[in-house]
Design a protein around this nucleic acid. Structure first.
Lengths: 214, 214
DNA sequence: TATCTGACTTTTTTGTTTAAAAAGTCAAAA
DNA sequence: TTTTGACTTTTTAAACAAAAAAGTCAGATA
């Protein structure tokens, strides 16, 4: 790589480092990426990285948070142009999938696995999910107000739906052979997510029996 | 323990060993249970166990398969007494949950984790899921024939539903602190499974837009 | 003053060796 | 046919050393 860093611009510099880090992390995962390597890629000393980021975890977090912000920004933009709540959900599911794939790469940790990366990822995932739930609640409430969705506790509903999607992702990942996802595997996952979402939405539309009344 | 083994009855003897093994495995998991211990519990020599089971894995498999057969037997019994397809699904989900809890104990492997137990468990889980899918397909087909469910490919539907349930279980397990499941955590999981199932069934009942036509 | 570096210390990971524990075998006994 | 004690082989665990990576810092650079 050995790209040139921008001179005299702290903001741009940080962004430059993030891009380099993202490349390495996306390619090799957290544990197989060293600070040394990231620094070398952009002709910096390792110590310089520590001038901008207190530690490796912070750098990793910044990279992931970057992606997440990008995603939510785009999502809000897209949703703003849609009227129907059910269409919003479908849009969210689709866009969310692209983030999942990025996240999958970033968190690709070789067999050595958890114990160090797991809590870090868990924290990042929780924040993502919190924001996601918020948005889902907004959409579900809108559907309720417009009289097309029937469900009492929309927060509960949002958490359930979020679980459901993530559950499907996990199950499909377990089916994968290697660490990489083939095109077919991806297509299958997308299809399942869509189908589950359609049924879910349908269930909401005609949900005459509210769970609370049972 | 030190229970007495039944004399001169190979079938009963095997069952006796299985019960002893189940107790240990359910309590400590595969890796923390030794053949020696199981043997000692029933006043046998370790070598005797190897007369009935070729190796430790076979014994473990036999224990799990035992549980599964019991489950399917009970399930078929219960389902036979129900008319409506949607009620059958609810019954299956509920009963399936008790099996999940047993399975959870049996497969409780301490931090040392995968690499040895994982493929073994995966094989057992796949067989379970295959049978489960079969039953689900039967139920979905019945619902379709009776004109209350609308979906084209019921096999696909069964796999999706199975994924969905397992996904919810996994997500809820990830939320758990320790290895054990508290009563509250269990109640929450049961509630989510039920709610998801209800929405799913509802979605099927009013699924005017078949996924294939989109 | 803000940014950066080489040389340094500390922590984590990896590899190696050895001992203990558990799996698995077998000839002979009951 | 079933069971056992004594045996061999394989797997796990502990202890230690060496290597690699994380993280620090006084001083250089501009």
């Amino acid at each position: 790589m050995h790209a040139k860093a921008p001179e005299n611009e702290p903001e741009a510099k940080i962004d430059f480092i993030l891009k380099a880090a993202q490349k390495r992390l996306g390619l090799y995962g957290y544990e197989k990426t060293t600070m040394q390597e990231i620094a070398a890629d952009i002709n910096m000393s390792k110590a310089a990285l520590y001038y901008y980021f207190p530690d490796k975890e912070s750098l990793f977090k910044a990279v992931v948070e970057n992606e997440q912000e990008e995603y939510f920004h785009l999502l809000e933009q897209r949703i703003a142009q849609i009227q129907a709540a059910d269409q919003m959900i479908l849009e969210l599911v689709e866009l969310r999938h692209t983030l999942f794939r990025k996240f999958l790469n970033l968190s690709k940790f070789r067999l050595s696995e958890n114990h160090k990366v797991k809590p870090l990822l868990a924290g990042l995932y929780n924040k993502l999910r919190e924001k996601e739930t918020e948005i889902l609640v907004t959409i579900f409430n809108r559907g309720k107000q417009n009289g097309i969705f029937y469900f009492d506790d929309t927060v509960e509903l949002a958490v359930l739906f979020s679980d459901l999607l993530q559950g499907i992702r996990i199950m499909e990942m377990k089916r994968m052979n290697g660490i990489e996802m083939t095109l077919e595997e991806n297509a299958m996952l997308v299809k399942k997510l869509r189908q589950a979402t359609l049924l879910f939405i349908n269930g909401l539309k005609y949900n005459t029996i509210l769970p609370e009344t049972i």
